[in-house]
Amino acid sequence: MKQIVITSGKGGTGKTTVVSALARIVKSKVLVDADVDAANLEIVTNPKLLISEPYSEGLKAFIDTDKCIKCDICRQKCRFSAIIINAQGNYEVTDYSCEGCKVCELICPVEAVSLNEVSSGLIKHSHTPFGNLWHGELFAGRDNSGKMVMHLRQKGKDEALDKKADWILIDGAPGIGCQVIASITGVDAAIAITEPTLSAIHDMRRIIELTSNFKVPVGIVINKVDINPSLVLEIKDWARSMKLPILAEIPIDRRIVKFMIQRMSPIEIGDEFLTGLYESIWNNFLEIL
């Protein structure tokens, strides 16, 4: 069993569309959507929900106003500026800013602070025609610490081992922070999706710095190549100098969006050339493994 993450650094380069195509190409796999902040893989994989259960990211502090003597020590010691004096003049923890470090509980002289589990999202398990999908839903405004991503990946790994699946395909999140680190750590290889724009190239370099820190082999897909053919050449030169293989070059094709709106992947357009391109991503990728 091997774990593969599809990543990009910059958002909107086409990660989920590539995963939706690979979901239809790769046999024997479990799907994991690691972009819990904007979970879109469910839109294009026609899932039937099997389980949805609440998920708690961790603890948040709570101040009992009856016990609080307004000594202000907690507010001064909180490094996250999470403790405020509200309109009624009471001390209150702003849920969004609290990191659950417990310092306020430790230093409160009258034991007015307690820490409670706070629900931060949902963990979902669905059946799709292309294999089972583990996906999450982080409630808006909650901290995307990567914990939920790790949890989903663990569930996916358990299922893949149980069913003796060959692959786990992970749809990554944009950025390079905890949620992305959590999607990369421990994978066998990565596919980075980029496009010929200066922004996407800048972001891809940062994500590849991250994957190489983790010694994860990477193949590159250049999407929307018609935007700027000369930048495509630059990406290729750079990839050659970094010894990174280019897996495929995908042109802009308005039918891809049209099919996405009908919740279908580019494979279902039925265009031989396009299907061949997406298949070549996987075939070329198998060679670098």
Partner: peptide
């Protein structure tokens, strides 16, 4: 802003 709807956006 950063993308998404998580805490960094708040």
């Amino acid at each position: 802003c950063p993308p998404g709807s998580a805490h960094s956006v708040v």
